[in-house]
Amino acid sequence: MIRIPCPHCGPRNSDEFSYIGEEKRRPGPDTSPTEWRTYLYSKSNPAGWTTEQWFHAAGCGKFIVAERHTVTNEVRATRPKPRFERSNAGAEAGGGSS
């Protein structure tokens, strides 16, 4: 069990989170199949500090980015994962309704 300081909820047990994976840049739509498979399968899998995504399933329900040491399991920094920006053009102002 390791402790992850959630940027939204504070320190929590890792069993509240789902591990998502290493932070990597997703290739664009014009990528070649080989590049796409490299993105899918290749892992740096370091023994040391790594930056990865976790999902706080049993907490705030947000994706977060954590810097973790894979040998000691120490988590030295976390931050919210930048929110996916959606266009508000089509959103009805005050679109709340029951």
């Binding site: 959606r86 508000n88 959103a91 102002a93 005050g94 679109g95 709340g96 309704s97 029951s98």
Partner: peptide, 24 residues
């Protein structure tokens, strides 16, 4: 009171520009 509460919240958040959902 869920209908009344939903109405109350929705009207309070009417000015928001981001997407807001209110669900019973």
């Amino acid at each position: 009171r869920s209908d009344a509460v939903s109405e109350m919240i929705a009207s309070r958040l009417r000015g928001c520009t981001s997407l807001v959902t209110v669900i019973d």
